[in-house]
Write a protein that binds this DNA or RNA. Structure first.
Length: 292
DNA sequence: CGGCATACCTGCAAGC
DNA sequence: TGCTTGCAGGTATGCC
């Protein structure tokens, strides 16, 4: 269920067990996830010290002492869990507490004493080792737009990125080239908070003269707010680091429109009802009354 | 090229 | 209860 806040939450959960630790043992239990593992995947990880664990959009990036970077994407159903009191021996990392070992696809045994297990039932996730020097030319990262919580992302830049587009705001915000890290949920939530219709043309973030409109400012503020709130909620749920996984403490209790079809709009003074419709093959939730 | 549908894979809930 | 159907938060790919 990972969009930017979830990936950031996972990063913070894994960081204490990965940063500064050595990968004593790495294991891929099948030959592919979304893509085949590289032939030298395990070899390039084994024995490496993880010097840092970062995030770009929805990718986790583990820096290795070798100069390589391990890129990890959670897809739709990927999650990590940390087993601090691991009892498995390398080659068999089944654990009594693991209910779903059939989808435990990758293991890192760290010198920190933790086993870090990647589980992904749908296998839309993937991992790839690339050279840090070649990061600029990495196809998976190349087209990514700005980080929504980074300095480069503001109303002017969003309006500029949307200028000339012949699509809706919903589709534009889901486009990782426009802004990188939002998914279906947070796009719905941000548009709702900005009181902007998901059907509004993206190009209306600027006026005819190319000047940015108040819509752009509202939208950027809403994106900032919802992402920061979600990260805060995810972070606080990870106080217990026994487990790092997607199900714990998500922001889902704070969704204002997502998956709330038929419920009353919570915008003060609005008497609308949340509706759902399909846009570019994805569910959009919105309030037709207060989102224009 | 931009915009859109499709495909990938499994699990789950809803409906019959 | 058991079967079928539809749907799911991701994105690479190919088509127009």
């Amino acid at each position: 269920m990972p969009e930017l806040p979830e990936v950031e939450t996972v990063r913070r959960g894994l960081q204490p067990f990965m940063e500064g630790a050595k990968i004593l043992h790495a294991e891929a239990r099948r030959k592919d996830l979304r893509f085949p593992f590289q032939k030298d995947f395990v070899a390039r990880l084994t024995g490496q010290i993880v010097t840092g664990l970062g995030r770009r959009a929805k990718y986790l990036m583990a820096d290795l002492a070798s100069g390589d970077v391990l890129l990890m994407h959670l897809g739709m159903s990927g999650s990590f869990r940390v087993q601090k009191d691991a009892t498995a021996t390398p080659g068999e990392f089944h654990h009594p507490r693991s209910k779903d070992i059939a989808h435990d696809h990758v293991l890192f045994r760290m010198s920190s004493g933790a086993d870090i297990v990647f589980n992904d039932p749908r296998r839309f996730g993937y991992m790839k080792v690339i050279a840090r020097d070649a990061i600029e030319s990495e196809p998976l990262l190349k087209g990514l737009g700005p980080e929504p919580l980074g300095n480069a992302f503001d109303a002017a830049m969003l309006a500029h990125a949307c200028a000339g587009k012949s699509t809706t705001l919903k589709a534009a915000l889901l486009d990782q080239r426009v802004v990188a890290g939002l998914g279906n949920i947070y796009v719905c939530e941000a548009l709702y908070r900005a009181h902007l219709s998901p059907r509004r043309q993206a190009s209306t973030l600027a006026n005819r003269k190319g000047e940015l409109t108040d819509y752009a400012r509202r939208l950027v503020d809403a994106i900032h707010d919802v992402l920061n709130l979600a990260i805060k909620a995810g972070g606080s749920s990870l106080r217990d680091h026994r487990q790092t996984n997607g199900d714990l403490g998500y922001f889902q209790h704070s969704f204002q429109v997502y998956d709330r079809e038929g419920e009353r709009c919570v915008t003060p003074g609005c008497s609308g009802v949340i509706r759902r419709f399909t846009q570019n093959g994805r569910s959009t939730f919105w309030c037709p009354k207060c989102q224009k």
